[in-house]
């Protein structure tokens, strides 16, 4: 009873926050509701025993992606009145596409799905250990490739947003390394009372 009650609590909250993400006028509110939605799905994952994915979801989505969204939303100066204008034009086509997808999935669910309904089975190993067993053996190549995907995304984001300013003086490492001490320092003999000439 506890599990069913918690499920319905979190699921209702999740659906409500997702609706608020779409319909809020201010993009900052949308991002904060998105954080709440991810937090609720984390609770759901922990509820059914997928602790590792739940915590990873919280770390990646709330800690990285949502904060990235928040930074971008705060960085861009958007007039919020222009964003949601003539929203009524798109309601019919949005309802149409949502209805089509809903009908397709309900059709597939009713006519194509199997009736078997296995329950949660208690396991000998914990969740993280099970994931680690396959992630570094069976899915080793995929794991490395996802690292490469992240590297490419990082390089791509930096290259896209980087602004090259030619007026800024930069460090030139080749030039630094090729200088010798005689280019910079000159030893002179200073006679008393005369000083040196500046050249």
């Amino acid at each position: 009873m506890f599990f069913v009650g918690s499920f319905f609590l979190f699921a209702t909250f999740l659906i409500t926050t997702c609706i608020f993400v779409i319909f809020s006028k201010n993009p900052v509110n949308s991002v904060l509701f998105l954080v709440l939605a991810f937090l609720n799905s984390t609770f759901l994952f922990i509820l059914i025993g997928a602790e590792f994915v739940g915590i990873i979801l919280a770390i990646v989505y709330i800690g990285a992606v949502a904060i990235l969204f928040l930074f971008v939303v705060m960085m861009l100066d958007i007039q919020r009145t222009t964003l949601m204008s003539n929203i009524k034009r798109y309601v019919p086509i949005a309802l149409l596409f949502a209805g089509i997808i809903l009908t397709e999935i309900i059709y597939l669910t009713i006519y194509k799905s199997s009736k078997s309904n296995p329950n949660i089975i208690t396991r000998s190993k914990n969740n993280t250990e099970q994931i680690g067993d396959v992630l570094y053996t069976k899915y080793f190549i995929d794991f490395q490739l996802s690292g490469i995907v992240l590297l490419l995304a990082m390089i791509g984001a930096i290259v896209l947003t980087h602004i090259y300013r030619p007026t800024i003086r930069r460090q030139n490492i080749d030039k630094q390394n090729s200088t010798t001490a005689t280019d910079r320092v000159k030893l002179v003999k200073v006679n008393s009372g005369q000083g040196i000439e500046n050249d």
């Binding site: 506890f2 599990f3 069913v4 499920f7 699921a11 999740l14 659906i15 997702c18 609706i19 993400v21 779409i22 993009p27 759901l44 059914i48 222009t82 964003l83 949601m84 204008s85 003539n86 929203i87 798109y90 309601v91 086509i93 949005a94 309802l95 596409f97 949502a98 997808i101 809903l102 999935i105 669910t109 309904n117 296995p118 329950n119 949660i120 208690t122």
Partner: peptide, 30 residues
């Protein structure tokens, strides 16, 4: 353990997917 079944979660993910698609078509400006 519980009377939770896969159908609960499938329905939940279906509803969230539909909300996402709906918002995709709704917010054409932002």
């Amino acid at each position: 353990m519980t009377s939770l079944s896969y159908n609960h979660f499938f329905t939940l993910s279906l509803v969230i997917f539909i909300i996402g698609c709906f918002g995709l078509f709704l917010n054409r400006r932002n």
